[in-house]
Design a protein around this nucleic acid. Structure first.
Lengths: 232, 232
DNA sequence: ATTGCTATTATGTCGCTACATAATAAGTCA
DNA sequence: TGACTTATTATGTAGCGACATAATAGCAAT
């Protein structure tokens, strides 16, 4: 059909362009949805959908009765996709390798307990492992696993399958916290990753929970040069 | 009213729980929207909205005619909010300070040109500046600004207002690319940030565009200890 | 067997209506 | 004047119907 319908995406783009072109400035109030629908000759629900998308992308704010406003202090919102390490390596065309470094039960430091929301110190399972790309160390993970919420992990042969992979396949989570930062490689880490002590490592720290019950906390140290790319 | 309506969020949560509890496994096909709507006694549009949300969060995949499937290789999707540096500092209760380090026109290295999608080398404006929190260096930014797309920047007194702030307020972008990585502090950087040479810095590199026309490329070096937190 | 058409199926999108809800403004009574 | 109530307003959500679209399966002709 030659006839173009007004899709909600076209409405969104139009409004976004108006904002980007400065026809609506930060803090400005936009017309009501109903008016927009009127001028654009479409239904209010279509405008609603468009507006909601702009809210999600951080460009506008809406309040009942208060109306729709362009955000005063714009934020850049980006989405990160964190894949299983094996796939990340394989999909970049390199060969994946895995190696368990150590496995033991121990009482973690308070900082770890705090991030997992555990009040009383108790021993957790500590699994350190190396993910290799084309035979070279790529990511080193230091992981604490809550044996109380995931006792099945004790039956898993972690020398053959990584905790990363097993957990994702077998222990779904409902919520997680991500922290990204940089850290100098310690002597031990440097040796394990075959780099120099003091090299700058990119660290992805992730704590996962199911219904507020902690599952695991993992620090992934990435090889120098590693970049995390986010999309708009 | 005591009567509970079935909201699309409740549908989403129910389906999500089914998946998380393993009642649907990775790769499994879910019932059709219409069937879901039937058993849950709600409209198909409500199911549609719920499903779309699960697609956005990376839990399921949908294809026309193909139906809805649980993703085989789950991904963790997180959202990053990047605020204006001044606000980031002020909202954490510290005093914001700003200092221009240098300003000049120069031809950037090819790596910079490439990231901005500029084919023929040409001079850009280079502005280095320091953002301070409670008087101490917090973020050092090395910025290239495209004077061709943003000539107005030349009239701005960058000793008083940061390019970060001016651009965000005055030069909207339609797209950007984010790269996160770790880097060792060079001698110069270390001196400017009052840290030791070789310290691990967290780098946020951002290139912004309007309609494929490059606006700016900025590398933000964050003080050791800086953490970027992402939300689920 | 291969190509091409057609029917089928499940999701995607839009319009319309109706009502819910939050925030505010206006009005009322002591 | 101040506290309480009520009306108004704009967004949020749900239902229903209709048609669009992509992917597939089945069938037919060569």
């Amino acid at each position: 059909m030659a006839e173009r319908k007004t899709t909600w995406k076209s409405v969104r783009d139009r409004v976004r362009d108006d904002i980007l072109a400065g026809r609506f400035k930060p803090g400005d109030r936009l017309p009501r949805d109903a008016d927009f629908a009127d001028t654009l000759n479409c239904a209010r629900s279509t405008v609603q959908r468009a507006m909601q998308d702009l809210v999600d992308s951080g460009l506008i704010e809406r309040r009942r009765k208060g109306g729709t406003h362009v955000r005063r202090e714009p934020i850049a919102r980006a989405t990160l996709d964190i894949r299983v390490t094996r796939l990340e390596i394989e999909q970049s065309g390199r060969e994946y390798g895995y190696q368990l470094i150590s496995l033991k039960e121990a009482v973690p430091p308070v900082s770890v307990l705090a991030k997992l929301g555990i009040a009383a110190p108790r021993p957790l399972l500590r699994a350190d492992a190396l993910h290799l790309a084309d035979g070279r160390p790529y990511i080193l993970e230091e992981r604490w696993i809550c044996t109380q919420t995931t006792p099945e992990i004790l039956q898993v042969d972690l020398t053959r399958i990584s905790a990363n992979e097993w957990l994702i396949k077998n222990k779904p989570y409902s919520r997680y916290e991500l922290r990204l930062y940089a850290q100098k490689a310690s002597a031990t880490t440097a040796q394990q990753m075959e780099i120099d002590q003091g090299d700058a490592l990119f660290v992805i720290e992730r704590a996962t929970f199911e219904d507020e019950r902690p599952i695991t906390l993992v620090k992934s140290f990435a090889q120098p040069g590693y970049q995390l790319v986010a999309t708009t």
